[in-house]
Amino acid sequence: MALPALQLHSVSHSFGAEQILNSVDLSVENGERIAIVGPSGQGKSTLLKIMAGLLVASRGRVEIEGADFHKLSHEQRQKLRCRMGMLFQKNALFDSLHVGENIAFPLREVTKQSEQEIETLVVKGLESVGILHAKDLYPDEMSGGMQKRLGIARAQALNPDFLFYDDPTAGLDPITSRKIIDLIIDLQEKKKATIVVVTNEMARAFQVGHRVWYVGDREVFDLGTPEQARETKNPKIRAFLRGEVSP
């Protein structure tokens, strides 16, 4: 039996005295798409960063394909990192580099490809997200939607097996949000990557997720498929998913 792509074992996390997550045990299968929802400030991004290895959980461990991420050697971790991509909430684009260089940067840093090969991949990457025309612009000169697309293209640059998206539709209009999620799904289906998406939009969560997780009150609930999530018996979660004031 294949190992889960990602497993959380009794993961707890605190910032100072404030506990954010308490003993989370969950797993993600290979090629699966997980949508994480929940009220603001409840630890969705924290959970995502713990899964991506950017934050070390206060307790518990994160296993990626059966290996404890933080116990790997530097070289092994580096190797694994090259198989991960992330779109950050604020996009985290390198504002001193223009669009093309933002995509080329990970390729130059991590791979040993020639400049010509990198240029080809940059063009391909920008084409895949539909912003090739903006190749020579700086991130600040682009709209929010284009910046998200650039962020996605950069996260995909190394053709990763694991992709983490932190609120990819934040601040976007409903049409652009839908297009961004369509793009994420389309790219995921081509590569069969394992993806985890944090979002505050229920419609987008149900659109993208094979499974939906709810983060709230320091716990993470696996609500199952979008259909199962809609039928959840937990009144608080049901109210949240429906956008109602919780009872």
């Binding site: 950017l54 971790r77 580096q78 991509g85 992330m86 604020k90 504002d95 991590v110």
Partner: peptide
Amino acid sequence: ITEQIEALQMLGI
């Protein structure tokens, strides 16, 4: 504050 440092870490830098 714009998460660029975390983006570097994600690339193993």
